[in-house]
Amino acid sequence: MEIDGQAAIVSGGASGLGLATAQHLRACGARVAVFDRDREALARLAKVRPDIMGVACDVAHEDALAGALAEAHDRQGPARIVVACAGIAGAARLVTREGPMPMANFLQIVNDNLLSTFNLLRLAADEMSTLEPLGRDGERGIIILTSSIAAYDGQIGQVAYAATKGAIAAMTLPAARELAQFGIRVLSFAPGLFDTPLLDSLTPETRHALAAAMPFPRRLGRPDEFADLVMHCIGNVALNGEVIRLDGALRLPMR
């Protein structure tokens, strides 16, 4: 699919991997809307990138997301490109001196990572399925989800996080198979360690240690590299139903 002239939506697009993706899409000529619940980040984005539409929205909430999609549709047309980047990290052990992990902790990560992704997937796919097909392949759109290498190499303390990211990876192929009849592609990325705001709380020593663990390149990933992969996958119609690791050959240790 050609990016130029298409409407695109990026959830979690006010910072990190989502922001880099939104900026790349805009640079390629797409009309871009970002959905994010961080109003301060959206305000900062509006100041520096008024050409990117920002909508305050909790994408895990059914009515809120439906309203945001309708607003984006009214302003820039139906989206054929959707990238789901919204999510949180979250780390907690199953059992501590204080007792078992509270169910509220687990449910929060499920809500922010898995339910937000599924909600965007189902609503975006429903709208895409009614669009006119494009080109000789009859493509109607592409939806890219964000999993994690923790789906495969989950560390101690990542039970909840790995569960949500593993679920996103697992639903990629069945979603792609189901939506193939409409000419909609579904992919997931499983990024490794990237230099995003999720790592801002770490000390310089910890960040250095994480970078040193990377086989090659021996550094944290750059959000632009995630965005570059998004651009390639949009243009390569043969890519479908796959979970793509973007991790510099990193395999997470036990802890």
Rank of each mutant, 00 (worst) to 15 (best):
L229N: 05
A249V: 05
V243I: 06
A125D: 06
L246C: 09
A86W: 02
Q108C: 10
F106T: 01
V48R: 14
A167L: 06
M254T: 13
G192F: 03
N113V: 03
T172V: 08
G67D: 15
I234W: 02
P100K: 13
A169T: 08
L199Q: 08
D195C: 05
L239N: 02
A43E: 15
Y152E: 14
F35K: 02
I81V: 15
A180P: 00
L187G: 00
S116E: 04
L134Y: 09
G29D: 11
I149S: 01
R39Y: 06
L187R: 00
R185W: 03
G183C: 04
R136T: 15
P133A: 12
M128S: 05
V34I: 14
P197V: 12
P100C: 11
L120K: 04
Y161G: 01
R218I: 05
R251F: 06
N113A: 08
R136N: 13
T206E: 13
E127G: 11
A22K: 03
K47P: 00
A72F: 04
A70I: 01
L131A: 09
A249R: 14
A170S: 14
Y161Q: 05
R136P: 11
C28Y: 11
A14V: 06
N111L: 05
G18D: 04
G135P: 03
E40M: 08
L69S: 05
F189R: 01
A64V: 07
I52R: 01
L121N: 03
L131V: 03
I52A: 02
A125E: 09
V243M: 07
G29C: 10
I9Q: 01
